[in-house]
Design a protein around this nucleic acid. Structure first.
Lengths: 145, 145
DNA sequence: TGCCATTGCAACAGGATCTGTTACAGCCAT
DNA sequence: ATGGCTGTAACAGATCCTGTTGCAATGGCA
């Protein structure tokens, strides 16, 4: 399966919001974020809406509205972003229930669930080690090269 | 996106082949494997064909043909199975190229690629720690409860 | 040599998901 | 009240996953 790009879009938007904040613009509209990500504003609203639900962003409606970071970028880990936008498991179990008459069919799902749980835990631990500020720093470092 | 179940199908088939081998049947047909996984034999051939390409299985054609393990189950890690059947990245970058005029749009892809690479590395390390024999042992342990 | 069980593979269908888009309702600073 | 903006439903095109059918190719065996 081709993976989705939701985490990428969300982190991109957060990094852009942080850079704009440092430049004195604490609030950006969906159109402004979409211009950097190069996609439709509705895609941005879909993504940032989940981040706002999770408390990572605050959103203001009406004239002069837009999105702003609810916390410092160095306090937002990619794990929080992941949980906010992409609560899908990495590996799926069987599409249809296996044959429970077979000892393997009977016991394999909890056994694999165990392994997949450990994998997912490692993935979460890795995502928790990086913040939006880290990503922005690395992003700007690339720019200078 | 919903993840695919290719790794699950492949590990299930390998565990079943190992159990059959211990019971004195070193070769199973696609139909026999499909009966345990509860799917179509063609799905099994698609999956096991990749495992044979990777050298994990040997396949015999013609009358009395079928699949057999090319190595002991304790020598086959889930990482090898993963590499054989599911060479997809976990996270995708942008579907369309971001705006390169924006400093974030310009530098974010290598920055995120860095993070995603580390995540993928952790995932591989975790998968390498478990063998098909481990999964079978856990599977049979569940059976006894 | 001919038969037959079995794999290899192409092709297709149904369902799901992802991304992008349009349209419109709801909100709110001025 | 107006205008600018978000929230969200609905839809389309593309892609992928799973399951299925059909048929060619292989090779053991009589």
């Amino acid at each position: 399966m081709a993976a989705n790009s939701r985490l990428t879009i969300a982190v991109h938007a957060l990094a852009w919001l942080e850079l704009a904040r440092r430049r004195g613009r604490g609030v950006l509209t969906s159109d402004e974020v979409a211009a950097s990500v190069n996609t439709n504003p509705v895609v941005i609203r879909r993504s940032l809406g989940r981040l706002a639900d999770a408390g990572l962003l605050t959103v203001r409606r009406g004239t002069g509205a837009g999105w702003s970071l609810a916390r410092g970028a160095e306090e937002i880990t990619l794990l929080e972003v992941y949980d906010a936008v992409d609560p899908e498991p990495v590996f799926a179990l069987h599409a249809t229930e296996p044959n429970l008459e077979c000892p393997v069919g009977f016991g394999i799902r909890p056994a694999l669930g165990h392994v997949y749980g450990a994998v997912e835990l490692g993935l979460r631990r890795e995502l928790a080690r990086t913040t939006v500020a880290d990503v922005l720093a690395e992003t700007l470092r690339v720019k200078q090269q």
